[in-house]
Nucleic acid binder design. Structure first.
Length: 388
RNA sequence: GUGGGCGUAGCUCAGCUGGAAGAGCACAAGAUUGUGGAUCUUGGGGUCGCGGGAUCAAAACCCGUCGCCCACC
């Protein structure tokens, strides 16, 4: 259910001036909620899924595609865009929105995740992180302050603090160290942040240890950020650990601020996290799986490149209203993927992003209708994560 | 017609003086959670052109034969 236009205008008025977040509806039986976020480049409702545009593009999709899909906000990466093309060039275009032709809200990730994912190429110290650029091998030194400057230069709507996201481990000492480092970096980021039109989110670390998560949250909240993210989850730890952490940490997060579960996830992840009170998500799954020939549907995954679809005249998902499903057969999509044609990854990415964005929107509607729990139950009965 | 070269997986080929048929690509199946359009794992595939011979043992050596290529006539 969409908010009525008059109500939306009224809310926009209430939210005038800088970044703001307002809860519109809270579920009666779960912690799920619907919110409204106002940013310098427009509003969006939560829960929301942000397609990932690491290099200033949601891979294989144009801003027009994103608009057709109904995308409300995207995520870009400060670290990658700093290395290439560099902030000078983005500044010349008055920020990332104009540079990439996307007028809507943008959240920039700081590059903290790259400390983890590109760990072969880095050295961490108290001052910051020294990377060997994957681009040309050049030595790059990033500090929490530098990362804020980069994000301000890009004029993104939501900036993230530079954090230390450790590899998943049961090594409590390592997690505690990284948590402390993230807290000190967060403080430095907060001090340096000047751009009033831009929100700044803190990141809670602490691995799979409840007490460390609580400690991280408590001290991050003391610094008073515009929103709070959970980092370092769904990075290979057992599902029970993820849910246990969500169960304990979500209720402790400030009600009035958006909660962002970083890097997550799958349709099932969204249901579990939203039930526990999460508002924002981003994940490379729809685009990465799309590029590699796998489609998400209401009943599970379809590996379109599999030989059994060679002659299949059906669309990926006959219940899906996206451009790809309205016009193309599995057989044709498989042919494109098989032939290495770029339209294949484009059409599959379109479908997957459409599915993710609109799945979370549907959840939003169900919360407002008071039907979230039923919807979740029903979906989980029909969705087979191993369906191939 | 004469001389030479080649014939091994779907494709391109490697296999030494005889000792358990290989690689790359392709194909197929998996993995993928704040993205390196990447990467990794696994699998199916062979009358070694065909026939004969010597040998304990042949893709390899010998004889014949078929096919393709080159040179000369």
């Amino acid at each position: 259910m969409q908010i009525k236009k008059s109500k939306k205008t009224e809310l926009a008025k209430v939210l005038e001036g800088g970044f703001e977040f307002k809860i519109l509806h809270t579920d009666t039986t779960t912690r799920a909620r619907v919110g409204l976020c106002k940013t310098a480049h427009g509003m969006f409702e939560t829960p929301v899924f942000m397609p990932v545009a690491t290099q200033g593009t949601v891979k294989a999709l144009s801003p027009r595609d994103l608009n057709d899909i109904g995308t409300e906000i995207i995520l870009a990466n400060a670290y990658h865009l700093y290395i290439r093309p560099g902030i000078d060039i983005i500044k010349q275009f008055h920020g990332l929105h104009h540079f990439m032709g996307w007028p809507g809200p943008i959240l920039t990730d700081s590059g903290g995740y790259q400390v983890f994912s590109l760990s072969r190429l880095r050295r961490i110290s108290e001052e910051g992180v020294c990377f060997a650029s994957y681009f040309d091998g050049d030595e790059i030194f990033l500090t929490p302050e530098k990362v804020i400057e980069i994000q301000e230069a890009m004029d993104s709507d939501i900036a993230m603090v530079f954090d230390d996201c450790p590899l998943p481990t049961k090594d409590r000492k390592r997690i505690k160290e990284s948590l402390g480092l993230t807290l000190r970096w967060s403080e430095r980021a907060k001090r340096r942040h000047r751009l009033r039109s831009q929100a700044l989110f803190g990141i809670v670390q602490g691995g799979i240890f409840e007490d460390l998560r609580r400690e991280s949250l408590e001290k991050t909240v003391e610094m008073d950020f515009d929103g709070y993210a959970l980092g370092g989850l769904c990075v290979g730890e057992p599902k029970e650990d993820t849910l246990r952490i969500l169960d304990t940490i979500m209720p402790a997060m400030p009600e009035a601020k958006p909660r962002y579960l970083m890097g997550v996830g799958t349709p099932l992840d969204f249901l579990e996290a939203i039930e526990r009170g999460a508002d924002l998500f981003d994940c490379v799954n729809p685009t990465r799986y799309g590029r590699n020939g796998t489609a998400f549907t209401r009943s599970g995954l379809i590996v379109v490149r599999n030989g059994k679809y060679q002659r299949d005249p059906e669309p990926i998902d006959s219940a899906c209203g996206c451009y790809t499903c309205r016009h193309f057969s599995r057989a044709y999509l498989r042919h494109l993927l098989n032939a290495g044609e770029m339209l294949g990854p484009q059409l599959l990415s379109f479908h997957n992003v459409y599915f993710f964005v609109n799945f979370v929107k549907t959840i939003r509607d169900k919360i407002q209708q008071g039907k979230f729990s039923d919807f979740k139950k029903d979906f989980m009965n029909h969705f087979d994560p191993d369906c191939r």
